[in-house]
Amino acid sequence: MKDTARLAEMVLAARLDGKMPAPTREWYGNTDIDDAYQVQEKVLKEMLRRRGGKIIGRKVGCTNQAARDLLGLDGPFHGALLSVTATESPARIAKDDYPFIILEPEFALRIGSPLRPGGGTHTAESVADAVDAIVPAVEIVSSCHDEWTDAGPALLIADNGSSYGWVRGEPVTDWDLEMLTNVTVSLIVGAHRVASGNAANVDGGPLGVLAWVANRLPLEPGDYVSTGTATSVHFAERGDTVVAHFGPLGQVEIEIS
C-alpha cells in the first residue's frame, strides 16, 4: 500500500470533517493488511485526539463465511470500540450522522481478567474464565469508501473495520456456556421480525472469536469484545424502531431519526 499517511488523511477527512466519500478508489483491491492496520492505528489516534474519549474494547468483523463472501475477505478483521461512539440502550441515532447504517446484533464479551498474546495459543476453552459478563449489543456499521463492498479488506480495516458506533444492553454476569450457545437472537423492526440467528453464526462461537482477538491484541479488565453479527444484517432507514432480542440475555433498542 503506497502513501499510508495520505490514506489516513483521507479517512480522517471523511470521518471527522464530513468529506464523504473518501477519494480512496486508487487503493481498491489492495490487500496489504499490515499497512492497513498501521493506517487504522493512525486514524484512531487522531480521532481520540480530536474527539476525546478512549478505546473501550474491540470489534471483530467477517466472523462468518457469508460476510467474508460479501466483502471479499479470507478471514476476520478487528477494529476498536470507542467511548465517544458507544452508547447504552435504549438509543436514538440520526441517519444523517452516517453515510449509511447497517445494524448487526452481536454477543459482546466483557473481560474480567487480562488476556494477552504470547505464552501459548488462546482457545475458546482457555478464554472462557476471563469473561465476567455477556453483553447484548448492536454494532453500527458504515463506511467512508465509495462502493464499499468492492473496496477490499485493507480499506475496510483502515476505516476502523467499518465500525461507526456501538449500542450495548445490560451486562449479564450469571451466564454459562449452554445459555450462550442456545440463545436465539431476533431482530425486530417495527412489528416485523427481519432476522434471527444464534451464537453459531460466528465461526467458533463468541468465545472462539475472543480467542482470535486475544492471540493478536492485549485485552484488559473492563474491555469489551463485540464478536460479529449473530443474524443477517439490517440496512436501517429513518423512522425505523429496532429491537434486538437476546432471550434471557436481554435486548437492545434503537430508534433511527
Results as ranks from 00 to 15, higher is better:
residue 257 S to Q: 06
residue 195 A to K: 01
residue 254 I to V: 11
residue 36 A to Y: 05
residue 255 E to S: 10
residue 196 S to G: 08
residue 67 A to Q: 05
residue 3 D to W: 10
residue 157 I to A: 08
residue 12 L to P: 13
residue 172 V to Q: 11
residue 31 T to W: 03
residue 111 I to T: 05
residue 185 V to S: 07
residue 200 A to W: 05
residue 41 E to G: 04
residue 245 H to G: 02
residue 254 I to C: 04
residue 247 G to H: 05
residue 40 Q to D: 10
residue 192 H to I: 06
residue 218 P to R: 14
residue 214 A to R: 10
residue 83 S to K: 11
residue 48 L to I: 15
residue 154 A to P: 00
residue 249 L to N: 00
residue 118 G to F: 11
residue 79 G to A: 12
residue 67 A to S: 15
residue 95 K to I: 12
residue 65 Q to A: 14
residue 242 V to G: 00
residue 223 D to Y: 05
residue 98 Y to N: 05
residue 144 C to W: 00
residue 132 D to P: 15
residue 155 L to W: 06
residue 3 D to S: 12
residue 173 T to Y: 13
residue 151 A to M: 04
residue 15 R to Y: 02
residue 164 Y to R: 10
residue 121 T to E: 15
residue 25 R to H: 09
residue 182 N to M: 09
residue 208 G to F: 02
residue 243 V to T: 15
residue 122 H to Q: 09
residue 130 A to Y: 01
residue 91 A to E: 10
residue 219 L to F: 10
residue 13 A to Y: 03
residue 216 R to L: 14
residue 160 N to H: 11
residue 22 A to I: 06
residue 25 R to Y: 04
residue 33 I to A: 14
residue 238 R to E: 15
residue 105 P to D: 00
residue 47 M to F: 00
residue 62 C to H: 07
residue 92 R to I: 07
residue 96 D to C: 09
residue 60 V to C: 08
residue 127 V to H: 02
residue 190 G to H: 08
residue 57 G to P: 09
residue 58 R to K: 14
residue 181 T to W: 02
residue 172 V to P: 03
residue 96 D to F: 03
residue 242 V to K: 03
residue 199 A to H: 05
residue 64 N to L: 03
residue 60 V to L: 10
residue 54 K to S: 15
residue 189 V to G: 04
residue 240 D to K: 09
residue 173 T to I: 06
residue 95 K to Y: 13
residue 126 S to F: 04
residue 110 R to A: 08
residue 19 K to M: 07
residue 252 V to R: 02
residue 118 G to D: 13
residue 212 W to D: 03
residue 81 L to M: 10
residue 68 R to L: 09
residue 153 P to Y: 00
residue 205 G to Q: 07
residue 93 I to Y: 04
residue 201 N to M: 14
residue 77 F to K: 00
residue 14 A to E: 02
residue 158 A to R: 02
residue 130 A to P: 01
residue 162 S to Y: 09
residue 96 D to A: 14
residue 73 L to E: 11
residue 250 G to W: 00
residue 115 L to Q: 08
residue 209 V to A: 09
residue 232 S to P: 09
residue 163 S to N: 15
residue 11 V to T: 08
residue 58 R to E: 02
residue 92 R to S: 11
residue 167 V to Q: 06
residue 80 A to W: 09
residue 202 V to M: 06
residue 188 I to H: 00
residue 83 S to A: 14
residue 7 L to W: 03
residue 105 P to W: 07
residue 173 T to C: 10
residue 179 M to G: 12
residue 17 D to H: 11
residue 196 S to Q: 10
residue 69 D to T: 12
